[in-house]
Design a protein around this nucleic acid. Structure first.
Length: 479
RNA sequence: GGCGCCGUAGCCAAGUGGUAAGGCACGGGACUGCAAAUCCCUGAUUCGUCGGUUCGAUUCCGACCGGCGCCUCCA
């Protein structure tokens, strides 16, 4: 497995610290609203990374944080509370908001085939306040943190490595800095906050520095160190987290433990919508729920995202989403075909007979090689599609044997372990559909085409597409 | 100003110092009661532009044009 490491700006082999096991920390959501499709792209990329590692035989210990304390959460949750509301009431209001959006978040993940059970740890920031306090104290003891008026800051000057991940030089940072240096009294404007003193109207926790709440970056350091340890194989997030979030995580964590923390930093690119950055004012802001309301298949969205390389800017469009659905349908149709027993039309020119199992082995190799090479999904899918084309052609003339079909199905299942877009149809609740198909068969037998078409249309209206076969049988699938 | 990314057929997109994968859409044909699915055929003499290195560059170097990101809200 090779990945592009932001730290070195090169594609590097991943050599896990423990043989056969990869520790993976991914930056999760801030739960103050529904996730938008850009957020989802990042989570899908992380899911792809995990599934690929698993497909290549690694066990993965995956930790994703849930950020449930943060400025926007506080802003939105405290509205409507009386000015004199006490701290327990403020916490309760905050938890009500975050519980609601956390639940919505996992619903969204489920519908794009990211199961909650796939995570080893899903820590909420507010459950790790003691660990954060302890981490800050250790930084204080090492002279890397200092308190000012109830807040605590990280001293950049004490950490020479600062800026390495984002490749920022301190002079440049100073020049470009646009900070409200008045708000807090810091030694240097570049110093960032580890612990924020409570302000009126905010929920707070007790701490050695008085009432306050954690800074944004400290949670990931505290939870990562606590749950995955002092040496982590891979840490990932969206590109926008490179600076300052991950840079600051490195400073905090390594400043504390005194040695390198994460081997490989991996970042997923952003999503544009119709050529522009998503924003509510441009009217191109979408949540997954918006797409589903418009009748789109959530798995088509998953496919649309995964069929582009994670390090490239992806220009999302409805046209692209429809294209993704069409491409996906081709794979799904192929799967159904392999589940059946084959029907040869037996004539027509074609390329040449091929050895199905040999061809399959070749495609399988190419598929995994592509994924192992920095998650090259476009190439992996290309190998899958050429297999589909070749075997369709072969099956048209010389039906594959049952054993060959089963071997192909096993590979499709294996590939779906990563893409999770063409699962086996598990729905059997449609005895009704079967009954209608049967009565249509009778109508066809009587050459009553009008009735046959009427039933076809009736089913189509319910999203069921019929496929008449040469042997007189009729297969069906959902649109 | 600093750091960095991208520009390949109508759209999406992989890729390599040796002559352009794959998907969607389009068109023609086969098959079909009609469909659906599938198959066959068809599309860049060319990889933003201009130079350079080379026997040879889309791939390396330089300049330019165009689009974009980060430089303490942000997936």
């Amino acid at each position: 497995m090779a990945l592009y490491n932001t730290l070195t700006r090169e594609v590097e082999r991943v050599d896990p610290i423990l043989p056969g096991e990869v520790s993976l920390y991914t930056c999760g959501p801030t739960v103050y609203n529904y996730a938008h499709i850009g957020n989802l792209r990042t989570f899908l990329f992380q899911d792809l990374l995990k599934r690929t590692l698993q497909g290549l035989g690694y066990r993965v210990r995956h930790c994703m944080n849930i950020t449930d304390v943060e400025d926007k959460i506080i802003r939105d949750s405290q509205q409507g509370l009386p000015p004199d509301a006490d701290n327990p009431a403020r916490h309760a209001a905050m938890e009500a908001l975050t519980a609601r959006y956390t639940a919505a978040f996992f619903e969204d993940l489920e519908s794009v085939a990211i199961p909650r059970e796939g995570f080893t740890f899903l820590p909420r920031a507010t459950a790790y306040i003691p660990q954060m306090v302890s981490l800050i104290q250790r930084l204080e003891a090492r002279g890397l943190a200092y308190a000012r008026e109830g807040s605590v800051y990280f001293r950049i000057q004490g950490f020479p490595e600062y800026g390495r991940l984002a490749r920022l030089d301190r002079e440049g940072m100073l020049a470009g800095a646009s900070v409200d240096a008045d708000e807090y009294d810091r030694d240097s404007v570049q110093d960032f906050v580890l612990w924020k003193a409570a302000r009126p109207g905010e929920p707070w926790w007790e701490s050695p520095w008085g009432a306050g709440r954690p800074g944004w970056h400290i949670e990931c350091s505290a939870m990562g160190l606590e749950l995955l340890g002092e040496r982590i194989d891979i840490h990932s997030g969206g590109v926008d987290l490179v600076f300052p979030h991950h840079e600051n995580e490195i400073a905090q964590s390594e400043g504390c433990i005194g040695h390198p923390w994460v081997r490989c930093w991996v970042h997923g690119e952003f999503l544009l919508v119709e050529g522009q950055k998503m924003s509510k004012s441009l009217g191109n802001f979408f949540t997954l729920r918006d797409l589903v309301e418009r009748g789109h298949d959530p798995l088509a969205f998953r496919y649309a995202i995964l069929s582009n390389h994670y390090r490239k800017l992806l220009n999302f469009s409805m046209e692209g989403l429809r294209g993704a659905k069409a491409a996906l349908d081709r794979i799904r149709a192929f799967r159904r075909r392999m589940e059946g027993n084959g029907e040869s039309s037996g004539d027509g020119a074609w390329k040449e007979a091929l050895d199905p199992l040999g061809r399959l082995a070749q495609a399988r190799q190419a598929f995994w090689d592509a994924l192992a090479d920095d998650l090259n999904t476009p190439e992996a899918l290309a190998s899958l599609f050429t297999l589909v084309t070749d075997l369709n052609a072969q099956d048209d003339r010389l039906p594959l044997t049952r054993e060959e079909r089963d071997r192909v199905l096993a590979f499709l299942e294996e590939a779906d372990g990563v893409f999770a877009c063409w699962p086996a149809d598990a729905s059997v609740e449609d005895l009704e559909v079967a009954a209608l198909v049967e009565s249509r068969r009778a109508a066809k037998g009587a050459r009553n085409w009008a009735e046959a078409d009427r039933i076809r249309e009736q089913l189509r209206a319910r999203g069921i597409i019929l496929e008449d076969r040469k042997d007189g049988s009729t297969a069906w699938h959902r649109a």
